[in-house]
Simulated scan of single mutants.
Amino acid sequence: MPDEPRENIAGDTDTAPAAFEPGTTGTRAEAVVDDFGGLYWQKTYGGTDAFESLVRTILSQNTSDVASQPAHDALMERYGGDGLAAALADAERARLAETISSAGLYNQKSEVIVDAAARIREAYGGADAFDEFVREDEPGEVRDALLDIHGVGPKTADCVLLFAGGRDGVFPVDTHVHRIARRMGLAPADAGHEEVRSRLEADVPAEKCGFGHTAMIQFGREYCTARKPACLDGPEACPLYGRCDRVGVDEVGESVVDPAEAAGD
C-alpha cells in the first residue's frame, strides 16, 4: 500500500495508521471508500496547528499542491515561528503577496490571509486559543465561525476541521471530490459542492470520511482525471470501474463532459 504523498492538502499533519471495518453501512459510497482504502492508505487525521492549516488551505485555493507548497514554505520561512498569526495580521500585503506568488491569485490570497489573521487575533486573542476552539468546540459552531471569516469557504472550513481538529464525519469537497462523486453516481449529477458533501457525509461512516477525502483526491489525480479518465482505455484500466456509473463519460466516443451537462441532455 503506497504512502500518502506529502504534496497533499493535509500537509505535515499528525496522522495515524488506521484499519476500518469494511461495509458497515452497506452504501455504495462506503464501498467506494473501502476500495480506496485498499488501493491507497487508511489513516486518521488531526494535530496540525489550526491557523497554519487555515493558511495552507487558503494558499491551495484554485491551484495545485505543486504550486501552493512552495508558497507555504516561503511564507513560513519569512513569517513563521510562535507568532505566525500576529506576524501575518501586521504583514504588509504587497510583501506577503510577493512571498506567496507561486500559489497564484496572490494579491487576493494575501488579503484573505491578513484579514483572517487579524480576525483571529481580535476574536480569540491569538493562534493558541483559536487552535483550542477548533479542536474542542462543537463542530457546527466551529464551521460557522470559519465560514464567517472573509475568503473562507466550505472546503477550507472543512479542511481545518479535519486536519487540525481531527473531527470524524467531515468529508471536504474539492474539485476532484466534486467531479468523482457525481461521475460515479454517489451524488446527483447536477449537485453543488455542498450537496455532494452532505451526501458523502451521510453515506460514509464518520471514521472513514477523512481518508476517503484524501484518497479520492489521489484517485482523481491518478485515474479519474477531468479530461481523460482511465476508463477510456478500457475497464481494466480503472480499479473502480465496477463501482462507477461513468456519468458524462462516453467510452465509445471517447469523450467526456461534466456530469451536470450529461444530466441536462
Rank of each mutant, 00 (worst) to 15 (best):
K109L: 03
Y45C: 07
R119M: 02
L162M: 14
L105T: 06
G169T: 09
T15F: 00
A206S: 13
E122M: 04
K228R: 15
Q108V: 09
E111C: 01
V134N: 02
G212H: 08
T44P: 11
L186A: 05
I120H: 03
A226G: 11
L96N: 04
T57R: 03
E236F: 01
W41G: 03
R28Q: 10
V134Q: 09
Q61F: 07
G234Q: 01
E21I: 07
A226Q: 12
V173E: 04
V257H: 00
A19N: 11
V66M: 08
E77A: 15
I149P: 09
G220A: 10
L88Q: 04
E132V: 08
V142N: 06
D12N: 09
A237F: 12
S255H: 13
R227Q: 04
V134C: 04
G220I: 13
A94C: 00
E77V: 03
E7H: 14
G83Q: 06
A262C: 10
D35R: 15
V196W: 08
G126Y: 04
E132G: 01
K208D: 08
R246P: 02
D35N: 02
D168Q: 11
P139Q: 09
G38A: 08
A262L: 12
T63Q: 13
D148E: 13
A97Y: 09
F171V: 07
R246T: 01
I58L: 09
Y45L: 06
D73L: 15
A18Q: 09
F51W: 05
P235S: 14
A116E: 04
E132K: 08
G242R: 04
N8E: 12
A263K: 03
L161H: 12
A67I: 01
V152N: 08
W41H: 14
